[in-house]
């Protein structure tokens, strides 16, 4: 007598093993578990619902095709997120969203922005509901250029080192540092600005 496998009760590791042998139901369960996180990463980078949906689905298809390569060095969701990030970066490169003629970026390259932007210290101890704070952060992130947003996401949320970010974004470590600095400073200004706006 065989017992029916309860996929929902199985850990990711077991589901991955089953999926590696071609079990689509196991893979479907993995998608169900992590689809929101993968979609959220794509959306945070692309800032477009439709694109993020399509691209995150493409990431899942790629993951299925490369599943045999997954060795379990990192968790499945980390591995999956990396696939999604790489696809997002490719997509952003294709779209050529880099505006090299932007005055803002030119100033950043020569270090003008660092000097112009005032040092603002957001108060992390301010009593805010977590949802409200996340909402503010989302609004501020939306106002960053894709390069600054991507560096910030990869460093703060994905916890990647400068070297790894530079490799993925195909730029120098110096550029990563400069972009990260600019992104943090701008986030501080935007978060402080949003606070003032909401107090009025």
């Amino acid at each position: 007598m065989t017992t029916k496998l309860d996929y929902q009760a199985e850990p990711d590791v077991k589901l991955v093993q089953l999926a590696q042998k071609g079990d689509m139901v196991a893979f479907e369960e993995l998608v169900a578990r992590h689809r929101d996180k993968i979609y959220a990463r794509a959306f945070s980078m692309l800032r477009n619902e439709e694109e993020a949906t399509d691209l995150s689905q493409e990431a899942w298809v790629k993951a299925w095709q490369r599943l045999v390569q997954f060795q379990g060095d990192a968790s499945f969701v980390t591995w999956m997120t990396r696939i999604c990030i790489n696809l997002c970066l490719d997509q952003l490169r294709k779209q050529k969203r880099v505006r090299t003629d932007s005055i803002e970026q030119m100033e950043e390259e020569v270090g003008g922005v660092e000097r112009q932007m005032p040092i603002i210290t957001p108060n992390p101890t301010e009593r805010l509901e977590r949802g409200e704070l996340r909402n503010r952060i989302d609004k501020a992130l939306a106002q960053l250029s894709y390069e600054h947003r991507t560096v910030l996401i990869l460093h703060e949320f994905e916890e990647l080192e400068y070297k790894e970010i530079a490799k993925r974004m195909e730029c120098s470590i110096g550029t990563v540092m400069s972009r990260l600095f600019y992104a943090r400073r701008k986030m501080a200004v935007l978060l402080a600005g949003l606070k003032r706006e909401e107090l009025r």
């Binding site: 929101d36 979609y39 040092i119 210290t121 108060n123 996340r134 992130l141 703060e156 986030m187 501080a188």
Partner: peptide, 18 residues
């Protein structure tokens, strides 16, 4: 300032639903 910004972002990534 940099530290405060980092702390503010830590664990507060916006939640997005499919």
């Amino acid at each position: 300032s940099l530290k405060a910004t980092r702390q503010l972002l830590e664990g507060n990534e916006p939640e997005v639903k499919l």
